[in-house]
Amino acid sequence: MSIAERKERQRAERYELILAAARELAEAEGWDAVTTRRLADLINYSQPVLYSHFKGKAEIMAAVATRGFEELAARLEAETVKAAGAGGVLRNVCAAYVDFARSHAVVYEAMFVLPTNIKFASDDTPPALRAAFAALVAALGPDRREPVFLAEVLWGALHGLVVLMQSGRIPASGAEARLEVLVEKFSDKAQVSGPLEPHKPA
């Protein structure tokens, strides 16, 4: 291995170490506790070394969020092949979304709750985020009118349920029943009436 290759490998390892430390600290104390100083102390590197990878906390959070998009997309895409029929796929995908959000609460917060520099619904949207949204569109089944709008409403409903449960506004004990209601409503083949403006997907 050449010196350049060794340095590149060490740099990649430091990058992963920073992300892991940020996620662990956020899970233990919340994102407010994540600072470049705390992270530098945790990984035993100076702040200048940390800044050679990330300009600041916002970029670290965005990197954690991007990894979350990748994992979420993989899970949703996997669910689309596990059940026959649009209804079964839809329930699998919705359940996987809720389970991901509940089991990765800190990552989900970085992905969809806290402000980051990640662009949604634009040409700069990360491919993994596009893939996750595409899985929601696919889960609705074929021949749905305005599937992008419908998927956005589905996403909004799922996100709303997740945030309300995680904040204690509604009890977590009713999660399964709410999910069944949601899937039933979105499995309905009734189409949206009236003209809709062209829209760019997430």
Rank of each mutant, 00 (worst) to 15 (best):
E5R: 04
R6C: 03
R11I: 04
R11D: 05
E13M: 00
L19C: 04
A20T: 08
A21R: 03
A21K: 06
L25G: 04
E27P: 15
E29M: 07
W31M: 02
A33C: 05
L39S: 12
A40G: 07
N44G: 09
Y45W: 11
Y45A: 07
G56K: 07
E59M: 10
I60G: 13
I60H: 10
M61D: 05
M61P: 12
A62T: 11
A63N: 08
R67G: 03
E70A: 02
E70F: 10
R75Y: 03
A78V: 09
K82D: 06
A84C: 10
A86C: 08
G88V: 05
R91D: 12
A95I: 07
V98L: 14
S103D: 14
S103W: 03
M111G: 12
M111P: 14
P115C: 03
N117Q: 15
I118G: 01
D123W: 08
P127M: 00
A128P: 11
A131E: 11
A132N: 11
A132H: 14
A134T: 12
A138Q: 15
A139E: 12
A139W: 07
G141E: 08
G141L: 01
L150P: 03
V153Q: 15
V153C: 11
L154D: 05
L154M: 09
W155L: 04
R169K: 10
I170Y: 06
A172S: 10
A175Q: 15
L179W: 12
E184D: 15
K185A: 14
F186Y: 08
D188C: 11
K200M: 04
K200R: 15
A202E: 03
